[in-house]
Computed example of a mutant assay.
Amino acid sequence: MSSLETTMILMTIPLIAKDFSITFVEASTLLAFYVVIEVLLPIPSSLLAERIGAKRTMKIGTTIMGLSSLPIVLSNSFTLILALRIVQGVGASMVLLTSLSYASLIGSDEERGKMIGLNHTIVSLGYVLGLPLGGLIAEIDWKYLFLLTSALSFSSLYLLSTLKEMHAKSGLGINVIYASLIFDGIILGLYYYPFFVLSILGLIMTIWKIKLGKGFYLSSLSGFLHSIIRNMIAAFFVFYLYSLHLSTLEIGSLDYFILFLLRLSHFMQVDFTINIS
Rank of each mutant, 00 (worst) to 15 (best):
F20L: 08
K18E: 13
E139H: 11
L84A: 05
S199A: 10
M166Q: 14
F195N: 04
A83Y: 08
M11T: 09
L244S: 01
N76C: 02
R51F: 02
Y191I: 09
Y256Q: 05
I9E: 05
G91A: 06
S68G: 00
S124V: 12
L80T: 09
K18A: 10
Y240M: 10
K55L: 07
T29F: 03
T121L: 13
V36L: 07
T248A: 10
G61E: 06
T273N: 13
E111R: 03
I258Q: 09
Y158Q: 10
L246S: 04
Y240G: 03
M205R: 07
I72F: 01
I52A: 02
A179S: 14
L264D: 07
S153N: 12
L261V: 09
L133N: 14
L148I: 15
T62C: 04
T62P: 00
G53W: 04
M232H: 15
S219I: 07
G61I: 05
A92Q: 06
N231Y: 15
G53N: 09
G53L: 08
T29W: 08
L15W: 05
R112S: 01
P71G: 04
D184Y: 02
L4E: 14
G130A: 11
I207M: 12
H226S: 15
L221M: 10
S161D: 13
D19I: 02
L30G: 02
T12N: 10
L190R: 10
S45W: 00
L181G: 03
L259R: 15
N175E: 11
L212E: 06
T149F: 08
S153C: 12
S199M: 09
G91N: 04
G202C: 00
